[in-house]
Amino acid sequence: MEIKISVKNLDAFYGKNKVLHNISIDIPKNKVLAIIGPSGCGKSTFIRCLNRMHEVVGGTIKGEILLDGEDLTKTDPVLLRKRVGMVFQKPNPFPSMSIFDNVATGLRLNGVRNKKQITPIVEKCLKQSALWDEVKDQLNKSGANISGGQQQRLCIARTLAVDPEVILMDEPASALDPISTTKIEDLIFQLKKDYTIVIVTHNMQQAARVSDYTAFFYMGKLIELDETNKIFTSPSNKQTEDYVRGRFG
């Protein structure tokens, strides 16, 4: 099994407050890793370390995070985020841009200006995110004037356009209705052929449905990491068992 990201002894802080304690995880390539745990357990902080968004809100880290063997804490965050894309909890399309421009913006931010180059990529990404059929006739509409589920798929298309290798998803379906959630889950299943996906979720059924591996976080610590069906059927740790059985959290 090929390892895409290797996290070694990671501590994360907000000011003096330590929120992640000595996390070590190997994230396999072209698989889906789900991160579960009660709220406040540090799961969002963890994935925000992987594309260095943690430092945008003033956080700091200690430890190593290797992306294809290269320590990403020492590279330029702008370069890094091209390779490690992110989908946020609440859909955040750019309301002042059209649907087309929302997807194209990542390309333009990275220097692609030629419309002939951009148009096919936008179409491809909207197809990949299963949004094309719904919006192909209204590409000039504002990115904010579609439903919440469509907005989230637009955000996924926007992330895909930059052609990342890893996609981080921070509870991507938690603000959506059940039908939209199903669509997002199907999409994740499709995407893992080409991308390494790390998804944070508080919904255990969702973790069970979409992921190959599951990590359970509790109070800033990694409690257990294993194949998803193992975690949900026979976890080796008592806390994990309590959590997946719904006894707390």
């Binding site: 968004m53 702008v78 370069l79 985020r81 992110m86 946020f88 609440k90 990542g106 990275n110 926007r158």
Partner: peptide
Amino acid sequence: RSQREAALALGA
């Protein structure tokens, strides 16, 4: 803030 994060996450 999510608007800024969206842009930064795209490599802005």
